[in-house]
Structure formats: C-alpha cells, structure tokens
Amino acid sequence: MKHKLDVLFRLIAAILGGYLVSIGFSIAFVPVLVWLKLCSQAEAVMVATMLSYIVYFAVIIVSFCRRSPWLLWRDLLLSLCLFSAIYWGMEAL
C-alpha cells in the first residue's frame, strides 16, 4: 500500500508537477532572455517554450530518482518559487 501511494505521488509530481514547473520556466525565462538582449520578446517566447520541454523531461526523470516523494515535492515547490521570483524580479526591473 505504501509503495503504491509512493508511486502515485511520484506520478502526480512527474506529470502535473513537471508540467507546472515547465510552464513556470517558459514564462520566467522570457524576460531573462530579453534582459540579456539575446533576442526579441516573441523569439524569446519560442525559445523558452522549446526549452521548457527539456525542463519537463528533467522533472519526470528526477521525480523517479528522488529518495522520497516529500523531498521531490519540496524541490518542485522550490523551483516554482524560484521561477516566480525571477519573473517578479524581472518585472520590477
């Protein structure tokens, strides 16, 4: 039973959490690219969205490697916080 719950949490983290984190990344990375003067905003949107799939993939793999689901969820929440901090920080600049 415990094993099954464990797997369930990991699955939710991988699929849902991964999606959320990659959305966060795809939004937060755009102002960074623009701020670094690497490309225009529309281009940055495209680049960030493409790269967000790599983030998604990484999250899926990580969620099945972390020792416990709680650590995993902590990491996911932390990265979401990080992305929103970047976003709001860039907004304030």
């Binding site: 529309a42 495209m46 967000s52």
Partner: peptide
C-alpha cells in the same frame, strides 16, 4: 516541436497572444 506552442501555450499567451499571432 511541431505543436510546441499548442502543447505549452501559456508563455505565448502571456506575452504575445495566440499561436497564430506569435
């Protein structure tokens, strides 16, 4: 990548608009 924006439309919607506008 063919449907890159369709699967992950949020960034585009936030900054530019629909996929077509982008």
């Amino acid at each position: 990548m063919v449907y890159v924006i369709m699967y992950m439309p949020f960034s585009s919607e936030h900054y530019v608009g629909t996929e077509r506008q982008l």
